[in-house]
Design a protein around this nucleic acid. Structure first.
Lengths: 201, 201
DNA sequence: TCATAACATGAATACTGATTCACCTTTCAT
DNA sequence: ATGAAAGGTGAATCAGTATTCATGTTATGA
């Protein structure tokens, strides 16, 4: 009668199992990204992964679980990418600009990111909130530091963080969901100008 | 053998029927807003509306149809509200500010707006695109006119439109989904400052 | 006042797809 | 070389609900 320590019905790791799990995760990303959560059947996922349906349940408790894992995964990847792209840039505005560029580039390469993250609000609201809260926190800290250093004018860092995040999201969506193909560098330049100077003539 | 002109299985209008339809639509808004599309059963909607399940199909072809109608409805309402709030304001930046205030106020009063509109991407992508395209067009036209009039500095109006829309969306979500309760007027002031001056000190 | 179109009912049907399970195969430590 | 443990299979359940339908009820125009 154990149960507290054991990992229950999943998390199995040994050699090829790891590979199968990855295959499943990758297949889930592809299928869910294409069809959406509701339409993506376990059958379609396992077919894509090249395994039998039952195999799915060796590694995941259910459909929601892969999904949640996917959301966390993508968040990590994206954060990692952006961190890499902005590491070592001391000027805040410039860091903001490069972060945006990295974000838009990543998104262009992972168009399913939107569907999946956005659908998370309905499938796993906690994962959704965690995803955006984490991003917002990052933005906010950067802005606070910059305000302290006198790089940017004073103002509510949290609101600004959400505003900037909204800009990035919106322009990513403009490209991926609405098919507007303005080159990323042009988008970045426009937004940077907006960041720095605002709208006023 | 007609069919072209007739309205098929719905659109019936006669006295109380109209009322029932409205009740159903209102119930759908409430229930879908609360539970999300997938979890919202027809049973729950008709129960909320106080009618039998079959009644639902007198007025709507299916679950998707109410949903689509809801999305369009909300878009119209919101647009109407914002138009009303900004009518007669000739200064573009000020109009932008009041539009944002109206938007955030509306959203605070209709927290289910987010769930529903956001879920539309999965249930009825066309309605989703129409919703945001319409908004973006409005923003863009306003910005183009302002640029022509020399009120704002030159720049890509479409990109700016999407950026501003993203800011509004993000801050609405910050309140409704993430429960941050900064007073609307404070949010508006912060964002306005950002609009006008940008971040640079 | 009654014929008829609208409107309403809710139990029965139908379908879809997630999850289970009894059994087979591969791996590898000893 | 061998027997657990880990990994894998896929057909058979099973649950949940959208949709249908045969049957009432209400309203109104002639």
């Amino acid at each position: 009668m154990d149960k507290a320590g054991t990992i229950e019905p999943k998390e199995p790791k040994t050699a090829r199992g790891e590979a199968t799990r990855r295959a499943l995760l990758g297949a889930a990303e592809k299928v869910i990204g294409r069809l959406g959560y509701a339409e993506a059947s376990i059958g379609a996922i396992t077919r894509e992964a090249g395994v039998a349906q039952g195999t799915f349940y060796i590694y995941f408790k259910g459909k929601d679980e892969v999904f949640s894992e996917l959301v966390r995964d993508m968040g990590r990847n994206l954060r990692h990418t952006i961190t890499g792209a902005t590491a070592g840039i001391s000027d805040r505005l410039e860091a903001e600009r490069e972060g945006l560029r990295a974000f838009l580039t990543f998104v262009a390469g992972h168009p399913e990111l939107y569907r999946i993250v956005q659908e998370a609000l309905f499938v796993d609201a906690d994962a959704y909130r965690a995803y955006f809260s984490t991003f917002a926190d990052g933005y906010r800290q950067g802005l606070e530091a910059a305000a302290l250093g006198g790089e940017v004018r004073p103002g509510d860092a949290d609101i600004r963080a959400w505003a900037l995040m909204g800009i990035a999201r919106s322009l990513g969506e403009r490209a991926v969901v609405f098919g507007k193909t303005t080159p990323i560098d042009d988008v970045v330049d426009s937004v940077y100008d907006l960041f720095v100077h605002g709208l006023k003539r």
